[in-house]
Computed example of a mutant assay.
Amino acid sequence: MRRIEVGDAAGLADALVRNRAHMAHVEPWRSEVFYTEAGQAARIEALLAEYAAGRQASYVLVEAGSGAPVGTINLGSIVLGPLRSGGIGYWVDRAWHGRGLATAAVEEVCRIARDEIGLHRVEAGTLVDNLASQRVLAKAGFERYGLAPRYLHINGAWRDHILFQRILHDDAPL
C-alpha cells in the first residue's frame, strides 16, 4: 500500500474495468469516462488536491512483484477540531479476495489516521448484504453503531447501510 499517484491511472482503469461487473452491486453509477485512464487521472488529481487541503488521504493497493494496482483505500471527510474523525472506503480486485488484503489496508489506514493525522475515530458503511466487507471491518476492530436508511444511491436505488466505527484513542485533541 502506498499513496496514490497520477501514474496509477492506467493500472487503476484496467483493474476497474476488470472488476466492473463484479462490483456493480456495491458501487454507485459511474460514467464511462470513470473507467478510462483519463478519467482516473482526473479523479486522482482531485484526490491529491483534497489531500493537500487536509480533507482526504488516498492509497493504492499494489501487487508486490509488478506494482500493479489491485485496489484502493480512501480516508475521506477528514474533520479535525473536537470531532477528529474520517470515513474510509475501499475495494479490492476480485482476484485478490480472501487474502486479508482489505483487512490489512483498513488496519494500516487506521494507524495512519491515529498516528499521523491525529484522528479520534474512523467510520465506514456497508450495504446491509455486504457480509464480506462487514467481516473485514470486524476483523479490523470496527463495531456496528447504526443503520442509515436509504443512505447511498447504489446500483440504481437508494440503499440502506450499516454504519461502523473504530475508536482509535481517547486522548484530548491537540
Results as ranks from 00 to 15, higher is better:
1 M>H: 06
2 R>A: 14
6 V>T: 13
8 D>H: 14
9 A>D: 01
9 A>M: 10
12 L>N: 04
15 A>Y: 04
17 V>L: 08
22 H>A: 15
22 H>I: 08
22 H>Y: 14
26 V>G: 08
27 E>Y: 04
32 E>V: 07
33 V>E: 15
33 V>I: 07
34 F>D: 10
37 E>A: 15
39 G>C: 03
40 Q>L: 07
42 A>H: 07
43 R>H: 00
43 R>A: 01
43 R>E: 07
44 I>V: 02
44 I>C: 03
44 I>F: 05
48 L>D: 10
49 A>Q: 11
52 A>S: 13
53 A>T: 00
58 S>C: 13
65 G>L: 13
65 G>T: 02
66 S>F: 14
68 A>H: 04
71 G>K: 05
78 I>M: 04
78 I>F: 09
81 G>K: 03
81 G>N: 06
82 P>T: 06
85 S>A: 15
86 G>T: 03
86 G>E: 03
97 H>R: 04
97 H>C: 02
97 H>P: 05
100 G>M: 08
104 A>K: 02
108 E>Y: 07
108 E>C: 05
113 A>Q: 12
115 D>M: 13
118 G>M: 10
122 V>L: 13
124 A>D: 05
126 T>I: 07
126 T>C: 13
126 T>W: 06
129 D>T: 05
130 N>W: 02
130 N>S: 09
131 L>S: 07
132 A>I: 00
136 V>N: 00
136 V>A: 11
139 K>G: 11
139 K>E: 01
143 E>D: 03
143 E>Q: 13
145 Y>E: 15
145 Y>A: 02
146 G>E: 02
149 P>G: 05
150 R>Y: 00
151 Y>M: 07
153 H>Q: 13
154 I>V: 15
157 A>D: 14
159 R>Y: 10
161 H>C: 06
161 H>V: 13
162 I>K: 03
163 L>E: 11
164 F>C: 04
165 Q>M: 08
168 L>T: 00
168 L>S: 01
168 L>Y: 01
171 D>T: 14
172 A>T: 12
